[in-house]
């Protein structure tokens, strides 16, 4: 690890100010990606701004048809939350399946979404449920937020404060975990909402999370697993690595999507 200046602000405003003032500052939420990167000397930020003491970023609540989760809420708290379990049980299950207990007790929803790892679970929920990302500056729709792997619409001095998930009629997330890392080789979130069916896929896309529009159309017409028969996701544009070829990932998307639909109905 290289040396850096460490800040521990108590408010969003102070955190944003510290970030803006730093030459090359980085926010630390749970640190699940950043800290290992620093330890391996693969990054050398000038400043680390730790959000752990910003209380206004924590907590889970409900607002007129939406579930709102503070950016610094850890996965274990989302998984265990009665509110989440009641309103969007698929989201609680997704959070409960991230990494391992250590990760779930440190890693945060805001950190995961801001990092936009192409194999992370939360981006599938944010995009699949059509959530809104609230920042210290504005609200960003999920469809505009994810802009390719590890890339988001966030500006350099912008930080996520809350994520608002519209409560769907039904939703399910089914993932095929990498046996080593527990990241998603393929993760599919299917949501049946007032505005139609949304299908978001993580783990597979070379540009990160994406929506499977052909599946969405088929499911809007007939919300059943068999509606997905014959829909082949092309393997072009999918990731291929030592754990799964793009061809296998394409196949898994079909299998996981059907299982997610089955879990909804």
């Amino acid at each position: 690890m290289y040396a850096f200046d460490y800040h521990q602000p108590a408010s969003v405003a102070d955190a944003a100010a510290a970030l803006a003032a730093a030459a090359d500052g980085k926010l630390v939420a749970g640190g699940m990606t950043l800290i290992p990167t620093l330890k391996q000397r693969l990054a050398s930020p000038s400043d680390l701004i730790d959000l752990a003491r910003v209380d206004e970023l924590k907590g889970i609540g409900e607002e007129s048809g939406s579930l709102v989760i503070g950016a610094m809420t850890c996965h274990a708290d989302v998984a265990a939350s009665d509110i989440v379990r009641r309103s969007i049980p698929a989201l609680a299950r997704l959070a409960g399946g991230i990494g391992d207990p250590q990760v779930r007790n440190r890693g945060t929803i805001g950190g995961s979404v801001a990092n936009n790892d192409p194999a992370a679970d939360y981006p599938a929920a944010v995009l699949g449920l059509g959530a809104t990302i609230r920042t210290n500056k504005r609200d960003i729709a999920a469809d505009d937020f994810f802009q390719g792997m590890f890339t988001t619409a966030l500006e350099p001095d912008e930080l996520i404060t809350r994520i608002a998930f519209p409560v769907p009629q039904a939703a399910a997330y089914v993932k095929f975990p990498n046996p080593a890392s527990r990241y998603a080789v393929v993760g599919v979130l299917v949501a049946k909402t007032g505005g139609g069916v949304r299908v978001a896929i993580t783990g597979a896309g070379a540009d990160g999370v994406f929506r499977a529009t052909e599946m969405e159309q088929a499911l809007s017409a007939d919300f059943s697993p068999k509606a997905l028969d014959g829909i082949a996701i092309p393997s072009d544009g999918l990731n291929g690595d030592i754990h799964a070829s793009s061809e296998y990932r394409a196949h898994l998307i079909g299998v996981m999507a059907k299982r997610a639909v089955a879990a909804c109905v």
Binding site: N178, P179, A180, S181, Y183, I242, H243
Partner: peptide, 16 residues
């Protein structure tokens, strides 16, 4: 080495 960490080298765990 492509399997240079536990992120890519899969050890057996209790649930396996």
């Amino acid at each position: 080495l492509l399997t240079g960490s536990f992120m890519d080298y899969s050890m057996p765990r209790a649930h396996d």
